[in-house]
Nucleic acid binder design. Sequence first.
DNA 1: CCAAAAATTATTACCTGATACTAAAAGTAG
DNA 2: CTACTTTTAGTATCAGGTAATAATTTTTGG
Lengths: 194, 194
Amino acid sequence: MVVMRIGRIPKQKRLLELANEIEHNPFITDEQLTKKFNVSIQTIRLDRMELGIPELRERIKLMAEKSYDKVVSLQIDEVIGEVVDLQLDKSAISIFEINEEHVFAKTKIARGHHIFSQGNSLAIAVIDDEVALTASADIRFVRSVKLGEKCIAKAYVRNDSLNRDKVNVDVFTYVGNELVFEGNFVIFRSDHKK
Amino acid sequence: MVVMRIGRIPKQKRLLELANEIEHNPFITDEQLTKKFNVSIQTIRLDRMELGIPELRERIKLMAEKSYDKVVSLQIDEVIGEVVDLQLDKSAISIFEINEEHVFAKTKIARGHHIFSQGNSLAIAVIDDEVALTASADIRFVRSVKLGEKCIAKAYVRNDSLNRDKVNVDVFTYVGNELVFEGNFVIFRSDHKK
DNA sequence: CCAAAAATTATTACCTGATACTAAAAGTAG
DNA sequence: CTACTTTTAGTATCAGGTAATAATTTTTGG
């Protein structure tokens, strides 16, 4: 068995530390790593091989590609959550999963505005109009939503409105069959073209 | 005056198209650009110089750094907007500037949920408690907010509440001295420790 | 203690996508 | 024709690597 003696840190430990170092500083070169670990550049490269960590240039390229995709997808998210059903001017359903970036670090409970955002953007999406803006809303958070839970929002357009420029949309959001949020949104529409 | 004859596109036009090409495909090499524009690689490089566009590797590095910063700052944003004044259990003020990612592409009007998010997170921040959650809210979007406008949200804790577990917070958001949003938030607090 | 195995270091050739610089050729205007 | 701009060509150099082969050092089993 291979057991390193004193004087230099053992290989296994170095591998762990190397992976860690690159993780939280992806912009470090092999050259700089040799100084950190007091080993030759070849050792660093063998280590990277073993760990399956690509070279600096590949790493930053991957990061850039990832963020580039994100920018594109950020412009796609006309709706917070994924619309699974849409009947214009009638009803709509969207699904939104709560993950780390949506919760309070301490409690792992979703921040209210994300739940609101899902409902609000669905209420906007269901309105078949060029320009639809939220005028006001009356909302209630029935119970808190936790990390990992899937929120299913259902929006219903109330057609009892007298005024054609204002539409009432009711939104109910569920986790499973438990109601977690409800809201009544008053939406302004620019001009109804149908 | 320099006016190019037929056969090749004029320099000024090429410069514009080059900037455009790199803008929406930052991962293109000078070599690939020579084929697109049918000029030598030196010309491409002179053009980049003139336009102040860095080389491929610099470009993707900048993108990666930007996204790396974003990941870090995403975890900092306990509050949407920048808190400029905070008197716990009394009042708070935050500033939030509307930029491209917050508006509808067509109209350049801010999506309602961002305005809501600023108000909601400020209402949470002003409550001096370990766990504070939004129970319900009654909100009104007074006028639409446009790209580039700075929203100043002011939150006031109403201390007329009988129930110590529920707190009412009023939020008024202004652009300049125009009211754009108002909301009354009912916040649940876990246990008041003072 | 000694030989085999493991780990590390050294060396060399090569790659991509550039910069920096010098020089020459081609096109264009007056 | 000539002054000027634009474009092309060529060379040297760089960073930050890959790939492969060999040599050296360290460790350990027995």
